[in-house]
Every structure is written in structure tokens, then in C-alpha cells.
Simulated scan of single mutants.
Amino acid sequence: MKKTAVTIITLWLTLTMSAVMAIAETIKVGAILAVTGGASFLGAPEARTLQMLTEEINAQGGINGKKIELILRDSAGSPERSVSFARQLIEEQRVFAIIGPSTSGETMRIKQIAEEGKTILLSLAAAEAIVNPLARYVFKTPQNDRFAAARIFMTMNELGIEKIAVVSGNDGFGQAGRGQLEQIAPDFGIKILANEVYDSRATDLSALVTRLMSNREVEAVVNWSIVPAQAIVARNMRQAGWDVPLFQSHGFGNIRYVEVAGAAAEGIIFPAGRLLIAEVLDDEHPQKEVLLKYKNDYESRYNEPASTFGGHAYDALMILARAIEEAGTDREKVRDAIENMQGFVGTGGIFNFSPTDHNGLDIDAFAMLTVKDGKFVKYEP
């Protein structure tokens, strides 16, 4: 009887230790994404990308023999939920790093939480305020909104546009973008004649469009948002017969916005990474191979067009994987490896991080695109 009891206890301890060792052999990566809700055009492709890449990496043996354990949380775009999930992932799940959130407002709410928890945060949101001022553990993969604003104004200069109206959502991304537009417009000789903020949950913006149209000096409109209102602005402008050029932010890089806007999307001009025009890049372009592989893998698996947002998730996980491969699983060494990573070819551009730059991309990461016959194409002034 005693031998049986000892055998059972020994077996239990063996199984327990094996389970603990198996857990220790995984790298826990948290992800806070807006899989549902108004920002799901961002979060859903990001989540699918992370799931696809995690399976691919694990099937190849993981990173230095350790498999990724992806712990995904759906924030539905809520800053409050993101705060709760960030604390849970850091304090209870003890994740190695967090990817996300999807939006700038959410990221700004958890930036300090990541710092206090000494946890690497690879944000998938665009606002420059995420990495400026610098935070030791916080990085981001989307291109900076300041460069997006500059590319828009450079295109306006080419077209001879000088007087514009700016409209933006009242979320974190909209506020940050509006600030960048206001700050650098004088550098490009652009005058902002009207500057309107709308509720990001709005379903009709015709009154706003009517107010803008009353100023006959307005030569173009810039809309800065990531919500479905991007399509609503376009529809309301066209319904009113207002045919001035409409520029969107780099948050327009999902073909679903075009599908929702329908014919009103034709001619919209916006800055974006080169993922959306990967097929037409020169064969010698350093990003082409990476872009086509991700695009083909994603589209063949999910039967939907790849978007720049899923690409941001691809960049985040691959940057993290490369840093772990180089530095092991010492978090501080991995943080240092990311901060000093040079020449990483991603979907958003070629990343060159530094102790003073936790985004690693410059204005050359952007191309100007437009909508033609319901598709994204390179913009030619």
C-alpha cells in the first residue's frame, strides 16, 4: 500500500514538473487588439496575422527551441479594457512582451503600465506620442503620423493646393494627427481654413460637410481617423456634389473602407506602406519578397485582402522574434536588441531603431496611393 502511494506521488510530481518545464519552455506573448467593435478593421487582421505567424514559427520549432504561447485579448477598442488587460497580462500571466493595442488612445493609456511593469510593448498604433517622449520599454511598428502629414502636404504642393479644411475623429489617433497637421502646415505653405472635430461614433457627417462647403476658398479636405467615418466623410462629400480632393490618413489602408464607401472612394489620396502595391514594386526593391510572402500567406489562409494593419502585427512579432533569437530570453537584453536593431525589412518599411528612435522608420517608408476602380494603386500626380 505504501509503495503504491509513493508510486502515485512520484508519478504526480513527475507529471507536475514536466508541465512546469513545458510552460517554462514557452515564450508568453500577450496581444491586446480591437478584434471587435468600431476599430475591428484594425484589430481583426492583426489578430489573424499573429495567430498565423505563431503557428508558423511554432511549426518550425519555435524561437531557439522555445514555442510562442500567444495570449490574445479583445479590447473592442476600449481604453478601459486595454488597461485591465495590460495589468492582467503583466501581473497574472507574466507575459514576456505585449503586442498592441490597435489604437493610439488605448496605447497611450497603457504606456506607463508597461513601463512600470518593465514589459516590452510593441504598439500597432501610429501616433508619434507613443514613442515621443521616449519610454524605455515602448516601441511601435506603424509609421509616424508626422511623416504621414508631411507626405500629404508634399503632394498638395505638387498639385498647387494651398488652402484646406481638416476634419478628424475625437479619438486619440484623430487628435494626434490633427496636431501634426496644424504644427507642420506652415512649413509647406498650407493654410488650414477650417478645422472640425467629429464624434468617432458618428453615422452621418452631412452637416459638417455643409459647413465646410460654405467656405468656397477650400481647395481640398484632409480627414484623419481610423473609424468607419472615413467612408462616411467620402460619401457625404460626394452626395453633396463637392468634388474637391479628399486626402485620408494612413489609417485608410484597408480595402474594406473602400468597399463601404463604394463609388465615393474613387480618387481618395492617402499615404501608406508599400504592402498594398507589393505586386508592382521593382523586383530589386528590398521589401518586395517580404511583402509578397506575407500578402500571399495571409490571403490564401483567410480569403480576404491583406491590409497595412495586419502588416503592423507581422512586423511587431517578427521584430520580437528576431530580438529573442539574438539575445535569448533575458527581457532586458531583448529590449536592448530591439532598440539597436538595424536594417530589419518589414511590411511597413526598413526599420532602423536607436536609443532615440523607438519607431525606426522615416518618411521614405510611405508611398502615396489612391483609389481607382475600387482598388488601391500608386498615386501619380
Rank of each mutant, 00 (worst) to 15 (best):
A240H: 02
L33R: 02
G172N: 09
I71R: 09
N58K: 09
G62D: 09
F366E: 00
Q60E: 15
H285M: 05
K2Q: 14
F376K: 05
Q143H: 00
T26A: 02
E55W: 01
I190V: 14
Q175E: 14
T4N: 11
V6C: 06
G349H: 02
V227L: 11
A323W: 04
I255C: 03
A149K: 02
A321H: 04
V290F: 05
G65L: 11
M52S: 05
A261S: 10
A44Q: 13
A148V: 03
N303Q: 13
H250S: 15
N64H: 03
S75F: 10
E299C: 09
E284K: 14
E266F: 09
G30P: 06
I110H: 06
L181P: 01
W224L: 13
S300F: 04
A125N: 05
E128M: 08
M341I: 08
I57P: 08
K372H: 15
K140A: 05
K191W: 00
G43L: 08
A176W: 07
L70M: 09
N254Q: 07
D357H: 07
E162Y: 00
T119G: 03
M237F: 12
L13G: 12
S300R: 13
N58A: 11
I63E: 07
A313R: 04
M154V: 09
S214Y: 05
P133F: 10
T36K: 06
V131P: 00
S78N: 13
A265C: 11
D204A: 06
H285P: 05
A365P: 00
I113A: 09
I90S: 06
D145S: 06
A19I: 14
E80C: 00
G253D: 11
P142G: 02
T36I: 09
K375P: 02
A165H: 03
I120N: 02
A365C: 01
T370L: 11
G251A: 15
E158H: 06
T356N: 12
K28D: 13
A202L: 06
V138A: 03
K28A: 13
E219P: 04
H358S: 07
P186D: 10
